[in-house]
């Protein structure tokens, strides 16, 4: 039976349950180096699809060079805050 989800600000996600599938020999996990970007350093450039003024667009961060840019990440559309 599925249960009803109470909806909060965190976006609900699922994931695999039980034993991990796949080959067990692969013990050497690639550890991704996690680092926060630093103030005073260049903002990493990226290209991303998006929606703007009724059109689908593709934009590079570096297109905004020469102007101040405010880059805001957020958890998800149709969330509440």
């Amino acid at each position: 039976m599925s249960e009803e989800l109470s909806v909060g600000c965190a976006r609900p996600t699922g994931g695999p349950v039980g034993e991990e599938a796949g080959p067990k020999e692969q013990t050497e996990k690639i550890v991704e180096e996690k680092r926060m970007v630093m103030v005073g350093q260049k903002a990493p450039d990226f290209e991303a699809p998006g929606y703007h003024n009724g059109k689908f667009i593709s934009m590079k961060l570096s297109e905004n060079l020469g102007k101040w840019t405010l880059l805001c990440f957020y958890p998800g559309d149709f969330t509440f805050v």
Partner: peptide, 8 residues
Amino acid sequence: GVNVLAMS
């Protein structure tokens, strides 16, 4: 003079 970008 600020360009705002939102990303999720």
